[in-house]
Amino acid sequence: MRLSLKASAAGVAALAAVATALLGGGAAQATTGSPAGSDPVGAVFVQTDGLAGNAIVAYDRNADGTLHWADTYPTGGLGLQLAGSAVDHLASQGSLARAGGSLFAVNAGSNTITSFAIRGDRLVRLQTTGSGGDAPVSIATHDRRVFVLNARGGGSIQGYLNVGGLLVKVPAWHRDLGLNPAATPQFVTTPGQIAFTPDGSKLIVTTKANTNAFDVFSTAGFGLSASPVVTTVPGTVPFGIQFDAAGHLVAVEAGPSAIATFTVNADGSLTQLAWAATGQAAACWVVVSGAYAYTSNAGSASLSGYRLGTVGSLTALGNTATDPGTVDAATAGGFLYVQTGATGTVDEFRMGADGSLTKVGSVLVPDAVGGEGIVAS
């Protein structure tokens, strides 16, 4: 299936003009800069998932890895707490995503997505648009394509074109996942993440305990296959995923609290390469940085480190304690930042050359108990 852009050319041009005007100045919601005397080298954005109003909290990232509050930006939408969840209200990975100078956030409680333009440590809210389904929980981006995963109602995915930071819905890029909408509890039976393969040719959805599977859609030719290739992994509850430098899929299996690596084959099927139990409780999220991967273990308040081999092998490096409720994580500049949903904090760690983690501090994120979604640069 190929997309024709001719019919929507005028609309795309109009949206691009709006984005250009907003980025030209005068539309920023706030202009708070870095604290006096700090040494900012990047920024970290954290989503609150606030039930009364979702927001993105921006932090300056200093050279020593510590974070300092810069400002807070309402998304114009609502957060959501899936039934049965405690420290992980969205029970997903990747609910906040960056594509160049754009930041995309899900508003699971109002079935919308908010687009921001990134200007250093500041954000300009550009748009809030419908997610095409019920309870958006994860976003994937590649080139000009953006896809959102809706968790409830049997699950669905919806695709958009990214036009200067504004999202243009493509009706042909909608697929229902056909999961059991009545399965309970929601936090382990709703789908967990959507992600592109590094080359953008495939789109992967984890279904967690609903079907214990990886659904892989082809996106070749700027289209979307009618149905996915399904690889079932019984009893594993596949949750968070990322890719290593060699293009292997690195997945966390919440059922056995384990990490596994896979080859994504040309036909969309998966072949397992390695598997390792973390020995921790509720391993659900994963972040990859260079030759290392770290799982977030919500039930043990810890991170488990692994060295990734060139053929997908896994070598355990040990566990590092965090604040309670370890969830979504991101890395930048040799540092790892992890949300801890029980306390609504972000813990800051320095990553050693050997993959070891040394805590350098933590920050409290207002109204973020149970929140998920973090991006670092």
Rank of each mutant, 00 (worst) to 15 (best):
K6T: 11
K6A: 12
A7N: 08
V12Y: 11
A17Y: 14
L22G: 02
G24R: 05
A27M: 02
F45C: 05
F45R: 02
V46H: 01
Q47E: 15
N54G: 04
N54K: 03
V57R: 00
A63E: 15
Y73L: 09
T75N: 03
G77W: 09
G79W: 00
L82G: 08
S85E: 14
L90E: 04
G94H: 05
S102T: 06
F104H: 00
A105H: 02
R119T: 14
T129K: 10
G133P: 01
T141S: 13
D143Y: 10
D143P: 05
L149G: 07
R152P: 10
G153N: 09
Y160C: 07
N162K: 09
G165I: 00
L166V: 12
V168W: 08
A172Y: 01
R175F: 04
D176N: 11
G178K: 04
P181M: 10
A182Q: 14
A182G: 12
T189C: 03
P191G: 03
I194C: 02
N212E: 11
N212P: 07
F214M: 15
F214H: 15
V216Q: 13
T219H: 11
S227H: 10
T231A: 06
T232N: 12
V233M: 06
G240S: 01
Q242R: 13
D244Y: 10
D244T: 10
H248E: 15
V250K: 04
G255R: 03
S257E: 11
A258S: 15
A260F: 02
D267V: 07
D267I: 06
L270C: 14
W275L: 13
A276P: 06
G279L: 10
A281D: 12
C284T: 13
V287F: 00
A291S: 14
G318C: 06
A321P: 03
T326D: 08
A329Y: 00
A332S: 15
Y337I: 02
A342V: 08
G344A: 06
G344M: 04
D347F: 07
G355I: 12
S362C: 07
G370D: 11
A376W: 00
